[in-house]
């Protein structure tokens, strides 16, 4: 048998070829992707439902009926989903003295969305939702920017 060998262990020494390296890399990438997507899905399990209300001030009357309950809402900047409109109301806009502004309406859009913890608050599609926060949103047919006036879980 082998005289040069240093015992049985060396006679069975593993030869790593380029193919083995490719297999290892492929397997590592596959496992990494599996872990990544598994975690991504698991994280959604941490989510919860929130409702937030956006006040859109000073919308021209002719545009004030463009939002309807059931509309999907997206972030204007990145088009990520921000929830679904569950309630909608409007009232005449007023100025700082409380006087009605003719032809202008304030819209109140209630949106329900899956949120995830973000610091001490909540975020929808990575966008933090908090009262007094400014949001630029859209449905498929209407853009609206407004202040979040209420958030509830």
């Amino acid at each position: 048998m082998r005289k040069n060998g240093v015992g049985g262990a060396s006679s069975k020494s593993i030869r790593i070829t380029i193919v083995d390296v490719i297999i290892i890399i492929t397997a590592a990438v596959f496992i990494a992707m599996l872990i990544h997507y598994t975690f991504a899905r698991d994280n959604s399990g941490d989510g919860y439902i929130i409702q937030y209300v956006v006040k859109v001030a000073g919308v021209r009357d002719e545009l004030s009926d463009r939002i309807t309950v059931g509309d999907a809402v997206y972030n204007m900047e990145d088009s990520l989903p921000m929830g679904t409109v569950t309630a909608f109301s409007r009232e005449a806009s007023t100025d700082e003295k409380g006087r009605t502004i003719p032809g202008m309406m304030d819209l109140y859009v209630t949106i329900e969305a899956n949120a995830r913890p973000y610091g001490v608050g909540s975020a929808v599609s990575g966008h933090m939702i908090y009262a007094e926060g400014w949001l630029e949103l859209r449905t498929s047919k209407f853009y609206f920017g407004g202040v979040c006036i209420d958030v509830s879980r």
């Binding site: 545009l63 859209r138 853009y143």
Partner: peptide
């Protein structure tokens, strides 16, 4: 084909 446009914008 590239610039999103909606009413209200």
């Amino acid at each position: 084909g590239k610039t999103l446009l909606t009413s209200g914008m």
